[in-house]
Design a protein around this nucleic acid. Structure first.
Lengths: 265, 265
DNA sequence: ACCTGAACACCGTTCAAGT
DNA sequence: ACCTGAACACCGTTCAAGT
């Protein structure tokens, strides 16, 4: 499908072709001989890819029709031929990212024999998505899916179908598969939204050199007055430690234990 | 309506002065205009309350400086005397809502003797917040807290201090209290963000009658074509059922079991 | 067929000016 | 002291017009 990897996987690898300052950096059409048109060649796919890159680089609030247009060397109005407004674009971005999630297929390479391995592999792939696109992740987690019975993160028909089939093929009843869908999405949402928020913490506002007048505002954590919060002050360093990965693994392990219990009863 | 928190104990530590010295705070007893109308009498608190009401009624995207101003019978620019721009206002809204969370105190009425009761009561109070303000909840869940060691939902100094003290008073070590803070916030985030999303699902866009031309985009759930997804089609009604409350209770119960295990080892 | 210029309504924000 | 008019830069979106 669309190469939606972390911002620009391969195009930076081969520099040197960019002589003029305003040329688009990646020659995406190099392998596309027909009609030597060098022009923009807009398409929905190209627009969505550019949108993802812009979000990855500068955050969701920077994704403006006008800015996105200039990224593609095109006026903003041109985008409306391929995209149904900004909301539709955001939807397309979310869909494109979610479609990169791979649900382990029956004949899979990795050790995905049991349902536990199935869920383990899937969970880690969703985590990969969260860490590759931390700025976009709140969007994926927050926007309403197309149908009320779809839940954030695992929010495409294809993925839910594969998820349910995958569990059923590994011994789950219909009912257990459905409740596991709910439990699993809640689990992923809670852990990964937090982790992606940490990852891309310093994203939203461009940092400005502070004026001389105000050294007053508590800029990040240093300015906070912990005088009235002795426990907080004492445990501060422990609270700051980042154990996201271990937490994720531990919580996933416990989720599997819990599901195992529910299966048995 | 919206009973917003007490008179702002900690907001002075956060809400920043930005260089312009503005400190008119304690004018509590100035005589109000005698008119029956809620005359101007602007204040930060009044602005934040109105903002919460506007979000509850029409969603975050409707919270515009100009619309909020008109809600208060005031031009938008007047708000800037009390609020440091839209971002600061959103921050204040989140803080105000989070401050309504009550962490069970040592001498509490309800059966909060054990740490399990403590977490039970607290979890349900956060859930109350989510259900009372579904449209605002993504904001609370998503915005970066003031310090990197604060996590969404339980994101005020006061609350985290009370949380940690509450657990320590009930037998937790420092280390267990900290890890429980992380586990507990992840749990709440995952479950309540989903539940609030369901609650306020039909909020953002006004429903429009679809045009004849493009039957391409799947509008809501009815237009989705489930032909290629037999499992989805078969389980659709089960997927649609709303068991949010039972799921929350069950997951909370399992979380407590898990914590109990971790405490023992 | 594809893109753009011009226009409209709305937005956040600043600042000098009103009262 | 508190509010506003006017202005600026930017935004999403539409539509007739260009090529």
């Amino acid at each position: 499908m669309t190469p939606l990897g972390p911002t620009d996987p391969a195009s930076d690898a081969q520099g040197g072709a960019t002589g003029t300052p305003q040329e688009p950096e990646g020659e995406r059409l190099a392998h596309r001989p027909p009609a030597g048109r060098p022009g923009p060649g807009l398409s929905r796919e190209r627009i969505v890819t550019a949108a993802v890159q812009l979000i990855d680089a500068e955050g969701v609030s920077a994704l403006t029709m006008r800015r996105l247009g200039s990224t593609l060397d095109v006026e903003a109005m041109s985008l409306y031929r391929y995209v149904n407004g900004r909301e539709d674009l955001l939807e397309a971005v979310v869909d494109a990212l979610v479609e990169t999630i791979e649900v382990p297929a029956p004949g899979h390479l990795k050790p995905v024999d049991g349902w536990q391995g199935f869920l383990q592999v899937l969970a880690h792939d969703v985590r990969r998505l969260a860490l590759e696109h931390p700025a976009a992740f709140p969007l994926i987690a927050t926007r309403h899916p197309a149908a009320p019975w779809l839940r954030p993160l695992l929010r495409s028909l294809r993925i839910v179908e594969a998820f349910l089939d995958g569990l059923r093929a590994r011994g789950f009843t219909d009912e257990h598969a459905v409740t596991t869908y709910r439990t699993f999405t809640s689990f992923l949402l809670g852990h990964l939204l937090l982790e992606s928020a940490m990852q891309g913490a310093e994203m939203s506002p461009a940092e400005e050199p502070l004026d001389e007048g105000d050294a007053e505002l508590p800029n990040r954590d240093e300015g906070l007055d912990l005088a009235d919060f002795p426990t907080l002050a004492r445990l501060r360093s422990q609270l700051t430690e980042d154990h996201a990965e271990e937490e994720f693994e531990a919580a996933l392990e416990h989720l599997l234990v819990r599901l195992d219990l529910e299966l048995a009863q």
